[in-house]
Design a protein around this nucleic acid. Sequence first.
DNA 1: CCGTTTAGCTTACAACTGTTCGCTCATTCT
DNA 2: AGAATGAGCGAACAGTTGTAAGCTAAACGG
Lengths: 206, 206
Amino acid sequence: MSRAEQKERTRRAIINAAFSQLSADKSFASLSLREVAREAGIAPTSFYRHFADMDELGLTLVDEAGLMLRQLMRQARQRIEKNGSVIRTSVETFMEFVTGNSNVFRLLLRERSGTSAAFRSAVAREIQHFVAELAEYLRKETICPDELARAQAEAMVTLVFHTGADALDAPASQYAYLTSRTVTQLRWLAHGAASYGRKPKEQGSL
Amino acid sequence: MSRAEQKERTRRAIINAAFSQLSADKSFASLSLREVAREAGIAPTSFYRHFADMDELGLTLVDEAGLMLRQLMRQARQRIEKNGSVIRTSVETFMEFVTGNSNVFRLLLRERSGTSAAFRSAVAREIQHFVAELAEYLRKETICPDELARAQAEAMVTLVFHTGADALDAPASQYAYLTSRTVTQLRWLAHGAASYGRKPKEQGSL
DNA sequence: CCGTTTAGCTTACAACTGTTCGCTCATTCT
DNA sequence: AGAATGAGCGAACAGTTGTAAGCTAAACGG
């Protein structure tokens, strides 16, 4: 086995060890370099041959998580073409991602408001891809000015993300309810934005 | 000074020390018993005379934070009566809370998806008060069935909370924009829910 | 006024943490 | 073939952590 090949292999072992240690009651911040190294099957000091820092490893994990998110978006688009219902299909796809890769989602969810500014902005950047893509879609589909499309997309992503977070602590029997509740919320938003977008000044007592 | 009085006093010193050590780059999980005790001016072991655990202290902090939230709600109601615009006044009041008590808000924000199930459900409970109260208001104001009022309230609280989180990392010059963006989003929701609530079945391609 | 209670202290320990240093030894380059 | 590189290791160090045991002294209750 070539040297570079072997190096890449233990690098992956480290990354996988880190991912696998994340759980409902263990965040990235509570991982220790030594524990990760132990599970990766290397000596603690060998860790430094691959990452300068735990932070550097963390940023790598966030990048990989973001990658999975983008793959998810592509997958959602395919399903939409065959299925029709944009909102429901998107929400269902996202919920499958959350329940199937809960540790990955948890990483994004926690580090989005975590203690490292670098992590926070890395996560924010990944989510922005989501928002930007959705906003572009809305701008094409509806006849909405740029700024409103973006605000609408942000609200939608926020609601879907939040539902994912709820699902992490809810029993599987609740998934269907959570999904359809979110679908309803997104439809409200879409409908409200479409008919209300042109007259954003006070209307009614709200 | 009475004994009970003195005990209560150092108990508060502990709580205050903990709150004051929270910051953008220090979460509750990264506080150490010793550090807290040091800032409170007591020996590490004396901590146990007041709390069995760091977890017990944490739950106390979450309770206090929830109390502040409820006070905030009362304050918002007063301002609404004098001001009229429900949504804008509510969002502005909340943003003042976030910027004025950022450590308290950060605690709720982080522990909502933190590593302790007890913390998570404690925070969720506090937020439910928010949602329930808003839902009741919506049910009275609009002519909306229970379930929809609740879903609407949840979406609104989610969006406002998320905006608070954004504000924590944004420069103060962005506050006005964040606020009005959120106001717009909430109005969309309200409008969409009002006109769309009666026909939740597929409408349009979304 | 004397015995009990108890907040707070000091000392101590065992378990971990991240990181430095120097070594081995298989792969790579010349 | 011979020199250089670099991934991985073991030992060691200086910090920190939570927590246990036992003491002191001041407030308390009878």
